[in-house]
Nucleic acid binder design. Structure first.
Length: 270
DNA sequence: ATGTCATGAGAATCATGA
């Protein structure tokens, strides 16, 4: 891929130590330039930094024993960390947000709380976390910087984004409050890149391990890449590396990605 | 209610989150 085209991906790896081989296989085959990972499920000291470096990627990570955990990878470059954790609640101990400067852009990597079962404290935490994300996203958007907010949002935005909503109606991923928060985030001006590029197609990024959902393509679209105003016109392609979900012992998610074209040449002042 | 994974405690299965 020419240097002027950037492939940016997000992938909920569901346990990086058990899948570092699969991760490196995907990196070698698809060569994304920037990768946001979620659900590392490992402490910082157990992050497989060496394997990832050997695969040609610089990385920063924000881990946690057993649960959560996010990382940002850059091919042939070192992401420059600018934020670790979402502002707004100093008591929040979950590792769910990491932000870095890469290739002249700001990359926000997020793992939004699942929120099940709902109603209940976990759903309340999801909605509170969403409000903090919306507040921070507004600041990023207003900054005028080129920004990508990528990750597992744990929200199915509309009924178009699921094979069949019937058995998921009571799930936290489809609740009106979850969808309203996602819509309010988009209303700041962000572009939901996969839906923008494929307005009518069914697009899934997650197939749960139950009930042969992968074999029957019973998926959900919950991993999203949001582009700020400056980046949206640079969107050239977007998709899902579905083949990753079909490998042996896969994550229940597949990587979602965008390709951005070169920045418009700056007009001469005057 | 069910289904299937990864993780961790702790020693074989079980609890938890998703």
């Amino acid at each position: 891929m020419p240097a002027s085209r950037l492939k940016i991906a997000t992938f909920n790896i569901n346990g990086i130590r058990s899948r570092v081989g699969a991760l490196c296989h995907w990196l070698a085959r698809e060569a994304p330039d920037i990768v946001c990972l979620q659900e590392l499920k490992t402490a910082d000291e157990s992050f497989p930094a060496r394997e990832i470096r050997d695969a040609g990627y610089g990385a920063i990570w924000h881990g946690q024993k057993s649960w959560n955990g996010v990382a940002i990878l850059a091919r042939g470059a070192e992401p420059v960390e600018v934020r670790r954790g979402l502002p707004g609640d100093p008591d929040d101990s979950h590792s769910r947000y990491l932000e870095a400067a890469v290739a002249g852009m700001l990359i926000g990597c997020l793992y939004l709380p699942n929120g099940n079962p709902q109603p209940g404290p976990k759903f309340d935490y999801k909605l509170a976390w969403f409000e903090r994300l919306i507040a921070h996203a507004q600041e990023l958007f207003d900054s005028g910087h080129p920004v990508v907010l990528a990750g597992d949002y744990n929200v199915v935005p509309t009924d178009q984004d699921i094979y069949n909503p019937r058995s998921w109606r009571k799930d936290a991923l489809l609740q009106p409050e979850s969808r309203e928060a996602y819509a309010r985030l988009l209303a700041q001006g962000w572009t939901d890149a996969l839906r923008q590029h494929h307005p009518d197609a069914p697009i899934y990024t997650f197939w749960d391990y139950f009930r042969r959902h992968w074999q029957t393509n019973s998926g959900l679209r919950i991993d999203h890449l949001l582009l700020s105003a400056e980046l949206a016109p640079r969107l050239r392609d977007a998709g899902v590396d579905r083949w990753v979900r079909g490998e042996d012992h896969p994550s229940d998610h597949a990587p979602a990605w965008v390709v951005l074209g070169p920045a418009a040449r700056r007009k001469r002042a005057g």
